[in-house]
């Protein structure tokens, strides 16, 4: 069985990517299973999705804890233990990160027990599909290439089927297919890593009645949402040119996340720790004094 795990944020398209691979495998005559996992659905929150492929009926369900392939759309998730990107990576024959960095540089930085590959999927999407698009097609194509699923035409058929299901317009489908084609051509299949059959030995814990509050689902700690910096989600960073700013306050009023405050002279100041890069301020500034810059590294 081949097990693939995708990591991204709500809106990146990891669920659709897992479906593209599932459909490509299904069209190739394999048994396939794909599923996403998320908590309370929210754009920008960490999301994972899984695809399992086998020549016989699949007797596994739920999360993939021992992946053969891991694909990460947003490299900032690697620094977030809660996203679980590193779980079971010792089983993986490759971990592909959507990044402009060199694979070897990232491997040195991450020191993970599996081969690291990088490919700038965002650059392909920005160049071919356009801004604000999900990465499902390129991510699905990348996973198909790494898994050795093919030929290209069948992979593209799988991409198209899933994009049709999402209701994408024909021209948008065509651009996504072109992006998928490029990414598929850039990658080749990685051989599966030999693994020993799981021994399946676990130690069971026998619970006892916990004392006091530890027995109840109650949070006594003060709120820690402020410690979670949503600025990591940005693809583009808005930058205000104070020389041109008229202090009209439109950006301050419209920022949906309250990430723009006014300083003592009433100039807007962006809190980059929490600005998610929605670029509403950039769109709405009446004097166009806000520019955009693509993030190189957010963490």
């Amino acid at each position: 069985m081949l097990r693939i795990r995708f990591h991204g944020r709500g809106g990146h398209g990891v669920k659709t990517a897992s479906r593209i691979v599932g459909t490509a495998a299904f069209l190739s005559g394999f048994y396939a299973q794909d599923s996403p996992i998320y908590g309370a659905e929210r754009r920008g929150a960490a999301v994972a999705a899984y695809t399992r492929i086998d020549t016989k009926p699949i007797c596994e369900r739920g999360a993939v804890a021992e992946p053969d392939l891991i694909l990460v759309v947003d490299e900032t998730l690697l620094a977030d233990p809660a996203a679980g990107v590193r779980v079971g990576c010792e089983f993986a024959s490759a971990l592909l990160v959507n990044s402009g960095k060199e694979g070897t540089a990232l491997a040195t930085e991450l020191r993970l027990p599996c081969p690291i590959l990088t490919l700038d999927l965002t650059a392909v999407v920005l160049a071919v599909v356009g801004r604000g698009s999900a990465q499902s097609a390129v991510l699905g194509a990348a996973a198909c290439a790494l898994a050795g699923l093919g030929p290209l035409e069948r992979v593209l058929e799988a991409v198209q089927r899933e994009l049709v299901e999402l209701g994408l317009e024909a021209d948008e489908q065509a651009r996504n297919l072109e992006a998928a084609r490029r990414v598929y051509a850039d990658l080749s299949a990685v051989p599966a890593r030999p693994r020993l059959p799981a021994s399946g030995q676990v130690e069971l814990h026998r619970p006892t009645l916990a004392k006091g509050a530890a027995s109840r689902p109650i949070i006594l700690a003060v709120g820690n949402a402020a410690a979670r910096h949503t600025g990591r989600w940005r693809v583009f960073r808005p930058v205000i040119d104070q020389e041109a700013c008229t202090r009209c306050g439109v950006c301050f009023a419209l920022c949906p996340d309250g990430a723009i405050t006014l300083d003592e002279r009433a100039y807007p100041v962006i809190d980059y720790e929490n600005c998610k890069g929605c670029m509403m301020c950039y769109q709405e500034c009446p004097v166009h004094c806000i520019s955009e810059r693509q993030e190189v590294q957010a963490w």
Binding site: L204, A214, L220, A221
Partner: peptide
Amino acid sequence: LLFTEADWQQVQSLVQLAQFPETQ
């Protein structure tokens, strides 16, 4: 209950975080 030592470790650390932060 089918509940492993690994499950218990995970629960302990989260309960600790939620309920007994340092010097609170």
